[in-house]
């Protein structure tokens, strides 16, 4: 086990994102990608961040990791408390020490995230030479251990191979191994299985869940797949146009969504176990982030939209102790 830095004495959440705002300055204007996001993740917990492209789910994660391209990106406000410290007040050197060692990220596309001209062993070993000052030889040995741990067969022989010599599922295992190498407290997985076939996806998700349990890590799973979420998440944050529109424990949200967007998403996916007639389709398109509609950002697509929705931005209403919904009519949605 690596030496874990001091844990917070108070049993607060591992990660506490508060009122985060991120904007991108583009030629056409300011794109407001994240507009006041709050979420928390505790050790051993899995938070699924669900959203479509442009919802701000990945940008939020990049801000937490500190890998946002600035410029054009800019964190316009908020706090990211990790083990009680606000990451946004730290310098780049300190962020770099945290990145990899205490929090790590798994990306969607393993082939383009791995360096094609370095062997897998070198890339895994780099984590140890850079962060822990291990020798090349020791680092190589640790790389083999890691590959065993993510169940890559014949690890000793394959440690000297290049990324292109591995299949998609195996490459994603290498990404997981790399993220886990320093036994971080928090893992952010951005669409980790989207590029994989279903049978391989199941293998990779099972592995990730198992390792998370073993190491008691917090996991943020960023995805658009409602099926994957139902399989692994403890709680969900649904994002739309840079805001969290609903957050709830996983069982509640599938039973009775409290936001019309969540309900639309759940009703628009075809089911494996039944043959429906027509699918419910959310009308229209996700908004342009350069021109987010006034009031509730979802109002032009919402079947329940009223005057107030076009005028007032809905706050995150408290539905119950651990549920929130940003809909003026959350009660009607929940019971309707």
């Amino acid at each position: 086990m690596s030496t874990t830095p001091e844990r917070p004495s108070a049993p607060g959440p591992l990660l506490d994102v508060r009122d985060l705002h991120v904007e991108f300055h583009t030629r056409d204007g300011v794109a407001k990608a994240v507009n006041g996001v709050d979420y928390t993740v505790s050790a051993g917990e899995t938070l699924a961040v669900l959203g479509e492209s442009g919802s701000g789910k990945s940008v939020t994660a990049q801000a937490v990791m500190g890998i946002l391209d600035t410029p054009p990106g800019r964190i316009a406000g908020g706090e990211i408390l990790f083990k009680g410290r606000d990451l946004l007040t730290l310098g780049e050197d300190e962020r770099r020490r945290i990145r990899g060692a205490e929090m790590a990220m798994i990306f969607q596309d393993a082939l383009s995230s791995l360096n094609p001209v370095l062997t897998v062993g070198d890339q895994l070993g780099e984590m140890f030479t850079v962060h822990q000052g291990l020798s090349r030889k020791d680092a190589r040995a640790r790389a083999v251990e890691l590959m065993d741990r993510v169940r890559i067969p014949a690890a000793r022989e394959r440690v000297g191979q290049y990324p292109h010599q591995f299949s998609g599922g195996m490459r994603q295992r290498i990404m997981i191994a790399m993220a886990l190498s320093l036994e971080p407290d928090l893992i952010i997985a951005d669409e980790p299985t989207t590029a994989l076939d279903v049978t391989v996806q199941a293998q990779v998700m099972d592995l990730l869940a198992e390792l998370q349990r073993e190491l008691d890590m917090g996991l943020i799973l960023i995805t658009h797949d409602l099926g994957v979420v139902a399989d692994v998440a403890d709680k969900i944050a649904v994002m739309y146009a840079g805001r969290i529109v609903e957050t709830a424990p996983v069982h509640d949200i599938y039973k009775a969504p409290a936001h019309p967007y969540t309900r639309g998403l759940l009703e628009s996916i075809p089911r494996l176990d039944q043959k429906g007639r027509e699918l419910y389709a959310i009308k229209g398109l996700p908004p342009n982030l350069l021109a987010i509609p006034p009031g509730c950002a979802f109002n032009p697509r919402c079947p329940m939209a009223q005057e107030v929705c076009r005028r007032d931005v809905p706050p995150l209403y408290t539905v119950d102790e651990d549920r929130r919904s940003a809909c003026h009519f959350w009660e009607e949605t929940l019971h309707g």
Binding site: Q201, G227, A230, D231, V232, Y254, L266, L272
Partner: peptide
């Protein structure tokens, strides 16, 4: 193949 498809129902897991 069918058994590997994630089902959008947390009760099923």
């Amino acid at each position: 193949l069918l058994s590997a498809v994630p089902v959008p129902d947390p009760e099923a897991r």
